[in-house]
Design a protein around this nucleic acid. Structure first.
Length: 580
RNA sequence: GCGCCCUUAGCUCAGUAGGAUAGAGCACGAGACUUCUAAUCUUGAGGCCGGUGGUUCGAAUCCACCAGGGCGCGCCA
């Protein structure tokens, strides 16, 4: 595969010419040299900051250095003109033919356009990881969409990506699930669960109707065998059965959203196979685990505070604020210990880059987990990035839709998908930085106007397809691309050309929302181009008497459709053929 | 009290590794349908980038402090 990213190509020219002008510049200076799209067309197609970056280490005036770069770059193939500007920018104007020649590149690549060259690293993206105690609700939705799109984006950028779901099936919450299911089991047998419920501390935790069929299924399978039995006899059976059913529910919900994980990892299986001891071994060897007593939190101390001796991990040695407990005072492991083991397990499976997508309520957990991964990696290259997703409020008619898990009226993810469709859910969730709170406007999500970004982008694709359908009879195979010269057309090509670079940058920043914004802008460009043909008939795509120009424009439309599809594929949103 | 995230136009938000005159949409003003679907487009107005200092050729972006909003804070996961 050849380099599709023209910005990378030109950057390598700049670096070569810079090295010739100023030999021996340090790596970290060169790394800061960039070639970017320009905001203003008057500044050419691309701009580089090279002269300003290098001026100080070179002991030269940035304008002077820029002039030297301009002279060298001007002779490069494909570069029509270079000029120094402002405080020392080098503005680069490409040959029109080079821009036009991007269209056949895009057409040949198809939806693979923008695909980065393969990189060595195996990346694990873990997301959703909801407790297997019920269907997904809207709170899980953002993480599901962001994680899935991020994984797609990284794959697009050339990484070897695994999508993973961590099943929290080892803790107290799945015990509580089993007990709640037992109540439904008794009800299915027409027995009163009241006496049993009174024996359960905290009562029935999961009261949702979705457990009724689970209880019924158990009644069918086991009859009244467990009706009078003590908990110890049925707890494991009920828990495993219920967890399996809940995972089925969750998988269905995810499928409705178009999310499919490659791997489901069970916490319980990890624990039972001795994974925790395995995971903690390297920390023990490094002397990073000790018995100690934590200081009370600064400021106001909890009322029931009393010093306790626990096993602690020296998280402070790796940037955390305090050391963190590995084991409770009764000796059993904390969730953190299991999580260390889980990440150690990922590393043992060969992942040197891990990304966890968490809800914002886990923000306080990031430092300790990163500290643990740092300790586990012990010098090997391993990196954990945590993407935090802030709360989403679902809004209707300007009012927040009530979500109360306690009252059993929480909005299930499925309700949201049924209401607005998976494409709108995904696209709109990706129109925000994940670490900013967002309101999800139900009214906008179903609107057939520019208010609704998914509609706007899909409409652009449908318009492309509409032209291409109408073009079938007019198109000539020999596209004479040189006829594409109108400013609107060249602007369109520049936008398309930016796609591979955007993939690279967004993947590096772990920010899939940039793709959504890119598509929104690309759609805007196309709608503008479409309407330009309305104002000026000579700009219309299909020109009856000019087959060559028509062919060139069809290539442009086809390339636009390809980039739209390529981007929508990253977001997991379906392109549509027509809007009727 | 401590930690993390956020604060950009009336509203909802972008701002691409510190780059040039801070950009979109909505709402508001003025325009464009004998069509490749006007479900769209063009154009105007609208800003102390929360505040104050600092770092440098250059700061919405980095640092410090302050104010406001959110999340979390030793045997819950």
């Amino acid at each position: 595969m050849t380099e599709q990213n023209l910005f990378a190509v030109v950057r390598s020219f700049v670096l070569q010419d810079l090295a010739a002008l100023v030999p021996g510049l340090p790596e970290e200076v060169l790394a800061r040299v960039e070639v970017t799209p320009t905001k203003d067309a008057a500044h050419g197609d691309m701009a580089s900051n090279a002269a300003m970056i290098a001026a100080k280490p070179a002991g030269k005036n940035p304008r002077e250095l820029a002039a030297g770069l301009v002279a060298a770059l001007s002779g490069r193939p494909g570069i029509a003109k270079a000029e120094a500007a402002g405080p020392g920018f080098v503005n680069i104007m490409l040959d029109q033919a080079l821009l036009q020649a991007q269209l056949p590149v895009i057409l040949a690549a198809g939806e693979a356009y923008g695909q980065g060259l393969p990189r060595g690293a195996k990346v694990n993206v873990e997301y959703v990881s909801a407790n297997p105690t019920g269907p997904l609700h809207v709170g899980h939705c953002r993480g599901a969409v962001v994680g899935d799109a991020l994984a797609n984006l990284l794959a697009k950028a050339g990484h070897d990506v695994t999508k993973e779901f961590y099943i929290n099936d080892a803790g107290a919450q799945v015990i509580a699930l089993a007990r709640s299911v037992y109540v439904r089991y008794l009800e299915a047998l027409k027995l009163s669960p009241q006496a049993y419920i009174e024996t359960v501390q905290g009562g029935m935790q999961y009261g949702g109707a979705y457990l009724i069929p689970v209880g019924e299924a158990l009644a069918v399978q086991y009859g009244d065998r467990f009706a009078e039995m003590p908990e110890a006899e049925w707890l494991d059976i009920f828990r495993d059965f219920a967890v399996a059913k809940m995972l089925d529910l969750i998988r269905e919900d995810l499928a409705a959203l178009g999310v499919v994980h490659d791997v489901f990892s069970s916490e319980r299986a990890l624990v039972q196979s001795g994974g925790v001891a395995r995971g903690l071994a390297s920390l023990l060897e490094q002397g990073l685990i000790y018995r100690g007593v934590l200081e009370p939190p600064k400021g106001k101390t909890p009322d029931d505070w009393e010093p306790r001796e626990q096993e602690l991990f020296r998280a402070t040695q790796f940037g955390d604020d305090v050391d963190r407990p590995i084991a409770k005072s009764d000796g059993s492991y904390t969730y953190f210990a299991n999580d260390i083991a889980y990440h150690a397990d990922k590393m043992a499976r060969g992942f040197n880059a891990m990304i966890d997508v968490w809800g914002a309520d886990h923000g306080g957990y990031v430092k300790r987990m990163q500290a643990a991964v740092k300790a586990l990696s012990a010098g090997r290259p391993a990196r954990l990035d945590v993407v935090l997703c802030q709360i989403v409020r679902v809004m209707k008619d300007g009012e927040p839709v009530k979500m109360s898990k306690r009252a059993g009226t929480f909005v299930e993810l499925r309700d949201l998908i049924d209401e607005v469709g998976p494409d709108a859910v995904r696209f709109i969730m990706l129109m925000r930085k994940s670490d900013a709170q967002m309101d999800f406007d139900l009214n906008a999500a179903v609107a057939q106007t520019r208010d609704n970004p998914v509609f706007y982008v899909q409409y652009a694709h449908a318009r492309c397809r509409s032209v291409l359908r109408a073009a079938a009879s007019v198109a000539s195979p020999a596209a004479v691309l040189a006829s594409l010269t109108a400013p609107e057309e060249m602007a369109m090509i520049r936008r398309l050309m930016a796609w591979p670079r955007l993939v690279e940058q967004a993947a590096e920043a772990r920010e899939p929302h940039r793709v959504a914004f890119f598509l929104y802008e690309l759609a805007g460009d196309f709608h503008a181009l479409w309407n330009a043909g309305r104002e000026n008939a000579s700009l219309r795509f299909l020109q009856e008497d000019k087959p060559e120009e028509t062919a060139a424009r069809i290539a442009l439309v086809e390339a636009t459709a390809i980039v739209l599809r390529s981007g929508l594929a990253v977001l997991g949103v379906k392109p549509v053929e027509e809007m009727r």
